[in-house]
Simulated assay, not measured.
Amino acid sequence: MGVPGQLGEFLRARRARLRPEDVGLPALRERRRVAGLRREELAQLAGVSVSYYTRLEQGQSVNASDAILEALAGALQLDGYEREHLRELAAQRPRPQRKPPPERLSPMTRDLMRTFESVPAMVHGRRTDILAWNALGHALLAGHVDRAAPDHPADRPNLARMLFLDPHTRDLYVDWQRKARAVVGNLRHVAGRHPEDSLLASLVGELSMKSPEFVKLWNDHRVKPCEADEYELRHPLVGTLTVTQQILVPARSPEQSVAVVTTPEGSESENTLKLLGRSGLAPSPDTSPGAHSRPISSAAT
């Protein structure tokens, strides 16, 4: 995740998703060697020289002004999150990666988690390590994983790793692709803010080696932190239900997030969730050959 490389990759990816007609340029009939806008077309739209933009994309130019970055963001039709990501990448300077200490759950966040008794909840670290979950959150989203795993940093489950490498988690989401896109978009957002995080770089490297689907989504350079979204789940014990996953950010731990799962009042999904809560059970791990019966944790390789 080199700094100059990240900026160039992001600019190329966003340039590739636009066609000339998307930005008011005439559509050309001749065959184009590359998808999307050419460098000279983007430079023209942003009001910068082609040579300057080329150097910027190749990581050979630094200290781009706010005005130039804003012009590029407008030409590329970036949304708010993408504009912030562009500014972060442009402002970064190469720094040695370092291994940060294990993330800890603050007593205040632990107290907050105790208030979620009737709804599933879990706490994610910035690399999507699961730092805590309540009983219903564990039963709904990861009942095949050891309930106590988040209490041990070396064994903590990791949401991104589970989503791409654990068949139980993959089967849980009816529209797995949409959930995967959301998690990778959030990882991109975090990577732009913490390029020096060696553990995050290691996670991205591992998933890149083990999952071609992750590589495809990562190379798309979608940038969007997880907030709130609706998902249809296919639970192995209670069947199908539709839930909304909402993200809360603890005031004292802004790098962490509390994911709370809700259902519409009076809905069949609410009844299904209550049934899971009354059962007091979680699905037993599949011990058939080839199945993952151990947590996909931050220590797994």
Rank of each mutant, 00 (worst) to 15 (best):
P289W: 11
V145A: 11
V204M: 07
E265M: 05
E41W: 13
R181P: 00
A75Y: 04
T263E: 00
P254H: 08
L25E: 01
V190A: 06
P101F: 03
A16V: 04
V258R: 06
G36E: 01
N158A: 08
V119T: 15
G137M: 03
A135Q: 14
R294E: 13
K179M: 15
E268I: 06
L136H: 03
R161A: 12
R104K: 13
E230L: 09
L76V: 07
E41F: 04
A91D: 13
S257D: 02
S211F: 02
L275Q: 13
P94A: 00
E57S: 00
W218T: 11
R156P: 11
R93H: 02
P153E: 08
R31I: 01
P254E: 03
P150N: 09
L217A: 07
P94R: 09
V50W: 02
R98C: 06
A191T: 07
G8K: 07
S288G: 14
A132W: 06
G24T: 04
E57P: 03
R39W: 06
T115R: 10
V260K: 13
T301C: 15
A299M: 08
R17L: 04
E82P: 09
S211V: 12
K274C: 11
T262L: 01
G205L: 10
V261A: 08
P150T: 02
P157Y: 09
N63C: 13
R178S: 15
E270C: 00
K99G: 04
G266C: 03
D111C: 10
Q245F: 10
G5P: 11
R104H: 01
A73R: 10
L172Y: 06
L163S: 07
I68G: 00
